[in-house]
């Protein structure tokens, strides 16, 4: 019994002493260095225009009007709620999932003027894991380009050129997937170039 008391005393001392180092000094040092070296990134890669914070280049946001590219469906809160990240967590045989995807496929084809048997990119009709996915696939962007061009009254080739310019390739030519950042592309459509680089 006496043994346990000394042992517990040592234990509580160890908890406090280690907490000072690991939970105080460590994160504060990381904070100071992060702000010294990568200030914009440590503070959330925020995108501003004329002093207004429009969002973060890393965090997806909702776009639904035809002259903008649309992001993926989102299960975060009521959609792109950046306080409530998360996916649907629906399994592959979920009726909710299958019904919802069926509805989205039809809507995607109608909105982009695609023939009724056109294949729809998987990312366009499924929810991401975070609900905040900032990217869409290049295939998805290409299929939306016609609609965006019509809504803006500009030639589709011009829009496709912009999509090309805002398509990121695989890192080191190997890692990840080619992708288009929806917020950056849409800002470019509005004439705001190269934000959040």
């Amino acid at each position: 019994m006496r043994n346990w008391i000394t042992e517990l005393r040592t234990s509580f001392l160890a908890v406090l002493a280690l907490a000072v180092i690991l939970c105080g000094l460590y994160p504060l040092t990381a904070w100071v260095l992060a702000h010294g070296l990568f200030p914009g990134k440590a503070d959330g890669s925020l995108v501003t225009r004329d002093g207004t914070v429009l969002g973060s280049s890393l965090i997806g946001q909702e776009f639904s009007s035809p002259q903008y590219f649309h992001p993926r469906p989102s299960a975060a809160g009521r959609g792109y709620d950046a306080e409530r990240s998360g996916g649907t967590n629906l399994g592959p045989l979920s009726k909710n999932l299958v019904d919802e995807v069926e509805r989205r496929v039809a809507a995607y084809r109608a909105e982009n003027g695609l023939p009724p048997n056109a294949l729809v990119p998987a990312d366009a009709v499924t929810s991401s894991g975070s609900g905040l996915d900032p990217h869409i696939s290049p295939e998805n962007a290409h299929l939306q380009a016609g609609r965006v061009a019509r809504a803006r009254g500009v030639p589709e080739a011009k829009i496709l050129e912009l999509v090309e310019a805002y398509t990121a390739g695989r890192t080191l030519g190997i890692l990840g997937q080619p992708r288009v950042n929806v917020l950056r592309l849409n800002l470019a459509l509005d004439g705001v170039r190269d934000v959040g680089r």
Partner: peptide
Amino acid sequence: LGVDPGGGNMEGKEVRFG
């Protein structure tokens, strides 16, 4: 339902990782 099979199972996945 017409989802492109080339994309694989993207429900719950992020585009950047695939």
